[in-house]
């Protein structure tokens, strides 16, 4: 029920300005898969996820609008996760190597970070599947931001 509601409000299926072709759908879906593949390396070192999506973004800079649009959305979502995860990462490092102690505030942060990461993870899988089918998905916040950054004509 919650997820259904979530899908409707936070992630919206929208009509793209044109019907994307098969190879476009594949490339767009790949941009999300890129961030998923890198997650194993990205958990301890959050920057890896960002670099992976950034490389994919740069590689597809001159691609079609649909592909560029989804590469941008994937990149933006990784960028914000980078802030959340880096903060948690360095907090953990300071606890291990300095006299910083484990507090309820720290544990709460880590749990909040996990919740946001998992949400993003599920959204990414869902979007990767949908874009593969050629369905255009706009995320809450990132979608509208991408609409500003990404223009139809190069």
């Amino acid at each position: 029920m919650d997820l259904e509601h979530n899908k409707r409000s936070m992630i919206q299926e929208k009509q793209f300005s044109y019907e994307p072709g098969e190879h476009e759908a594949e490339a767009a879906s790949g941009s999300y898969l890129m961030s998923l593949i890198a997650i194993v390396a990205g958990i301890p070192l959050p920057i890896v996820n960002l670099i992976a999506t950034l490389i994919f973004y740069l590689g597809n800079r001159k691609s079609t609008y649909f592909v560029r649009w989804h590469c941008t959305q994937a990149l933006l979502s990784q960028l914000s996760m980078l802030f959340i995860n880096s903060f948690g990462f360095w907090w953990t490092v300071s606890i291990i190597f300095t006299e910083e102690a484990v507090t309820s505030k720290y544990i709460a942060y880590i749990i909040a970070a996990i919740i946001f990461n998992v949400t993003e993870f599920i959204a990414t899988i869902y979007t990767a599947i949908q874009t593969r089918k050629g369905i255009h998905i706009e995320w809450w916040f990132y979608g509208s931001l991408t609409n500003i950054i990404c223009r139809p004509n190069l």
Partner: peptide, 8 residues
């Protein structure tokens, strides 16, 4: 909200 719980 999560800090309201005594995780320690």
């Amino acid at each position: 909200a999560l800090t309201q719980i005594d995780w320690v």
